[in-house]
Simulated scan of single mutants.
Amino acid sequence: MTNPTPLNPDALEAAAKSLDVNYNPEQWPVMASMMRDYAEAAVSAYLAVAQPVVNSMEELEALPVGSVILSESYQYSLTVPNYPVVFQKLYTQEWHRGGRLADTHPEIIIPARVIYQPEVDDA
C-alpha cells in the first residue's frame, strides 16, 4: 500500500522558494524543478513523522486517548464525492466519529492518518 502524504502544491511552491532566495521558475526551470523535489522530500519526511499512517490494529491501539485520525478507508457515503471520516479515541479506548453515540469497530477504519496526538505525561 502506498503512503502518500497530503501535499498542497501551493505549499510546496512556497517551500521551494524558501530554499533559494533567487528562486525564479521562468529563468531557471531545471533549478525550480529541483527545488520543488527537495521541498517535497523535506515536507514528506516531516509529515511521515508528524502525521503517520496507522496500518495495523497494534499501531491504532498504541495511540493515546484523545488521538484523532482521518480514515483512508472509511468514507462518508451520503455525499458525492465520498469524504473521509475523522475518529477520536475516547477514554473508554473506543473510537468514535463525531456526534455518534456508538463506537466504531477499529478494523474498518484503518489505514488512517494521525492528525492529532495529545502529549502524554509519562510521570
Rank of each mutant, 00 (worst) to 15 (best):
D20W: 01
P118D: 05
D37Q: 13
H105S: 13
V68F: 01
L78I: 09
W95M: 10
S44P: 04
A102S: 14
Y38E: 13
A32Q: 01
A41N: 10
F87N: 02
D122W: 07
E58L: 12
Y91P: 07
D103C: 09
V114I: 07
V80F: 02
R113P: 02
A48Y: 09
N3Q: 14
A50R: 11
I109T: 03
M1L: 11
Y91F: 11
T92I: 10
N82I: 07
P25M: 02
R36K: 14
Y38N: 12
M57F: 08
P111E: 04
E119H: 11
P29S: 05
A112Q: 00
E119P: 08
S18Q: 13
A39W: 02
L70W: 06
E94V: 09
V43R: 10
V49H: 09
A11H: 14
E40L: 05
Y83R: 15
E59S: 06
E119Y: 11
D20V: 00
P6M: 10
S73V: 15
L60A: 03
D10N: 14
I108R: 10
E72W: 12
E40R: 15
V68G: 03
M34L: 15
V43T: 13
R100W: 14
S56T: 15
T2N: 12
S56C: 04
P106Q: 11
P111N: 05
Q27T: 11
N82F: 10
A42T: 08
Y83K: 15
D20L: 00
D103V: 08
T92A: 12
Q93P: 04
D37H: 11
R97A: 08
L90K: 13
I110E: 02
G98Q: 12
E26C: 06
W95V: 09
Y83C: 10
L90I: 06
L19S: 06
D103K: 09
G98D: 10
V53R: 14
V49R: 14
I115E: 03
G98Y: 09
L101N: 13
V114L: 07
E59C: 05
M31F: 08
S18F: 04
